[in-house]
Amino acid sequence: MQFLITVLLDGLIYASYLFIVSLGLTITFGVMKILNVAHGGFFAWGAYLASISIIYLGDNEYNSFLYYFAIFLSAIIVGLFFGYIIERFILRKMYNEDIHLIVLATFGLFWILEDLILHVFGVDPLMPYYPAMELGGIELGGIFQGVYSLTLAGLAIIVAFICWYFLKKTKYGKVLQSVIFDREVSVSMGINVTKVYLITFIIGGMLGALGGAYIAPTISVSPGFAIDVVVMSFAVVVIGGMGSVPGALIGSLIVGLVRAFAVHQAPILELFIIYAIMAIVLIIKPEGLFAPPKPRKI
């Protein structure tokens, strides 16, 4: 029992984190049909910007409410800044290119963003532990869990809700869905796809950065830590269905829980099993478990 609770909690925390990160990726793919490797760059930049802000706030003993403000602000700034530059000046010129070329371009951008970090923030690891320390631990199922990590689940639920509300209840969300469904038809209906793409890419970037910014207080933020995140969120997105929001949710739950179980029972399989699931899903249901519907084209 104790074991089950712990595995569930571990899995849930990890899943929440994965969900926030991969949501941005799946939205970008859904709307723009771009597999954005540079998403890892957003993640890392979000983490770094949040870290230096939190460390500054913490060292000067500011109100702890400001930590969370700094986290969200960092995510917004990173998403806006890099999202705008990358979409406007690089990706926009490539939409007619081969899809593989675009992936590769984002791969190059990922490398550039990674090295920029070294030059802007230096090589020393940052440890913005203040928020996590402040909230401390709570005993659940016989062992302590970090409260801050548990709030990740709350954040994931909020993000999921906002996303659902936006897509289903707002006009802009409906526009977005029509673009996801069929780009050409949307254009002919008078939707400004260029603008939709820009905004989508920025929001996707913000979500990636938010993942990094929110996880930062629990880790040692150091150069190169984003490289595993990229492929892990790829796995989540593929399992759930590329471009599907509920898919990202299910995908991250599956990966999070399976990984937690593996770490407890068979640590050697921890990495293997995630990608094995990804491969199996692709083999059985290539579109992913929750693939968005495809328009019938003749």
Binding site: V231, F272, I273
Partner: peptide
């Protein structure tokens, strides 16, 4: 893209085994 992703998945399966 499905070909690309499935190839990626297979390569990461091997990576997961070798690395651990």
């Amino acid at each position: 893209i499905f070909f690309a992703m499935l190839s990626l998945a297979f390569s990461m399966v091997l990576y997961g085994l070798l690395a651990k």
